[in-house]
Simulated assay, not measured.
Amino acid sequence: MGLRKKSNKNPPILSHEFVIQNHADILSCILMVFIVALYFQVSASFGSLFITLNHNITVNKTIGTHQYEDYNSLFTNGPKDLCFIFFYFLTLIIYHAVIQEYVLDKTNRKLHLSKVKTNKFNESGGLLAYYIPFFILALYIILNGYIPQINSLWIDYPTTILPWNVKIFFLLQIATWLHFYPEIYFQKIPQEDWSERCTYISLYVVFIAATYFLSFTKVALVLLTIQYFEQIIFHLSRIIHFSGKNEISKYGFMSWNIVFIACRLISFITLVLTFYFGLSKTSIPQINLVQQNFNTPIIRYNCMVAFGLLQAWLMWNFVNFHMRKRREKIGGDKKMLNFFSFKSSSTKNKNTEETKKKKRDSNRSKNPVSPISNHDNENNHQNHNSKKKL
């Protein structure tokens, strides 16, 4: 995801470079079709199908242990949610292009980073543009009374009736992580990074969509809040590190190490309390599609195992990351030791040669050879050669 170089030459229409450079403008034109449709009575229902929330119901009473007095209109999930996801899937691609061009690219030009660091900087910056607002929204929903107590995670199941902010949160989550797939193409991600990007994008899409359509929205909201808090600390520390403020980023990464382990532990405890102890009290033998109740032993245990394996996988990657860094550090220390040992041995050899040379010079100065003796030696050598010739 390097810096996009703007050239004066216009690429051919519908070529790859043309689509990459103008994808935000193309998608804006498509979105205008749905927005303009709202202005006409004939097509207003079609436009509202994509832009506004669907499957709304109106209730003015208490449902379960949760008070809905502040909400005049509530929603359920259904197939029309796919239209909402599609519209905001396109909108988020435009939002990402604006963040990339007017924030990340300008910052990269000032920092003068290498290609590898530029890719990581753009990844962290792009993810923070979604993590921070979603974390604030999730925290607002939780503190606003959607989950007043810890036992609300399983007492109110199935949570088929959702306030507007909860429903829009989950639909935007699905649209957000889906939009990262085309971003791999639009941002020109290096091919060696595709597998890593696609792995964590797919995990987010699958787990968020499953919890939304299986009515496990409350436990998913708590787990996402914990996950986003930990990711915000990591990516902020990485951006500070690439900005050249290594002292601040050092404390940031140290804090992230502690927060990461704490978040994995809290997430695992939440899973066990919800799926193993809480929901087992209201378990049903078969799925009830009318009430959207999926609290059967098979689904419950599979969800717990899947989420548990995800936490274990994250912890495994965390341990491998630190082990790799430690090996690199040890390897770097060994190279430095070898360098200094080689340097010291070379200086020792140089010193020994210098001492030998000094000894030879001192011996010559103590036993000087006279020029007469040198002349006699030369004469003797010449006489010896002449005798050989005779």
Rank of each mutant, 00 (worst) to 15 (best):
I161T: 04
I161D: 04
P163S: 08
V166N: 04
K167M: 03
K167A: 03
I168Q: 07
Q173P: 02
Q173W: 03
W177P: 04
H179F: 09
Y181T: 05
P182I: 12
P182H: 13
I184K: 03
I184W: 07
Q187T: 11
Q187A: 07
Q187N: 11
K188S: 11
I189H: 02
P190F: 10
P190I: 11
Q191S: 15
Q191V: 14
D193C: 12
W194R: 10
W194S: 13
S195D: 14
R197K: 14
T199W: 13
T199F: 14
Y200R: 10
I201L: 14
Y204G: 11
V205Y: 08
V205C: 15
F207C: 09
I208R: 02
A209L: 11
A210E: 01
A210M: 03
A210N: 01
T211P: 01
T211F: 00
Y212P: 04
Y212D: 00
Y212K: 02
S215I: 04
F216I: 04
F216S: 03
A220N: 05
L221F: 01
V222F: 02
V222I: 07
L224M: 04
T225Q: 04
T225C: 14
T225R: 05
T225K: 09
I226K: 08
Q227M: 13
Q227S: 12
E230Q: 14
E230N: 15
I232C: 11
I232M: 14
I232A: 13
I233H: 02
I233Y: 02
H235P: 05
L236N: 12
L236S: 09
S237Y: 08
I239P: 01
F242A: 04
S243A: 02
G244M: 01
K245D: 13
E247R: 08
S249T: 00
K250W: 12
K250V: 12
Y251I: 08
G252Q: 07
G252V: 04
